[in-house]
């Protein structure tokens, strides 16, 4: 059992490594020069050059990965270049609200979901089963951005 646990845990390391490559890679994939965007409407060449240097944008990709991964390992997620605040601080600002929302949502979702699931299993092929299925499929099939749009004027 312990052996199995250790084995499972050992696979986490390479997985996390690939996840880090993926996350870093996705940022690099995004087109456009971040310095040019950050430099604002005027795009003053000296500002662009300064940002390039500050963000290590001229260094080779592996070096930039090490800068980034090193920072992440030390708990430094970098600094928002837009408002010059540490990213970690920005995340912490939002975390309580996110947790609260997620928690309440999970409680509601689980209580409705489990009840509906049990009811539809016990009374299989009843109207209740039918309704639960329709509701579930409706939820799966509605593009949420569309639902969002349709609800806006009704705020």
């Amino acid at each position: 059992m312990l052996n199995y646990l250790v084995q499972r845990l050992a696979t986490i390391v390479p997985t996390l490594f690939f996840v880090s490559i993926l996350i870093f890679g996705l940022q690099q994939l995004l087109p456009g020069d971040p310095a040019v965007i950050l430099a604002g409407e005027d795009r003053d060449p000296t500002v662009v050059a300064h940002l390039h240097q500050k963000l290590h944008l001229d260094e080779p990709l592996p070096v930039r990965y090490l800068y980034w991964a090193g920072g992440v390992l030390r708990g430094d997620l970098g600094e928002s270049q837009r408002i010059q605040k540490p990213v970690l601080e920005l995340i912490m600002e939002k975390l309580p609200v996110t947790l609260e929302l997620a928690l309440i949502a999970i409680v509601i979702a689980l209580s409705i979901g489990i009840t509906a699931g049990i009811v539809s299993a016990v009374y299989k092929d009843s109207a209740w089963d039918y309704a639960a299925n329709v509701f579930a499929l409706w939820g799966l099939s509605t593009p949420n951005f569309w639902l969002g749009i349709m609800l806006i004027p009704r705020i």
Partner: peptide, 14 residues
């Protein structure tokens, strides 16, 4: 996720 975001909006409005 869908339910979550809808309820999220409702709570934010309140």
């Amino acid at each position: 996720m869908r339910t979550r975001s809808t309820i999220g909006t409702a709570i934010a409005v309140v």
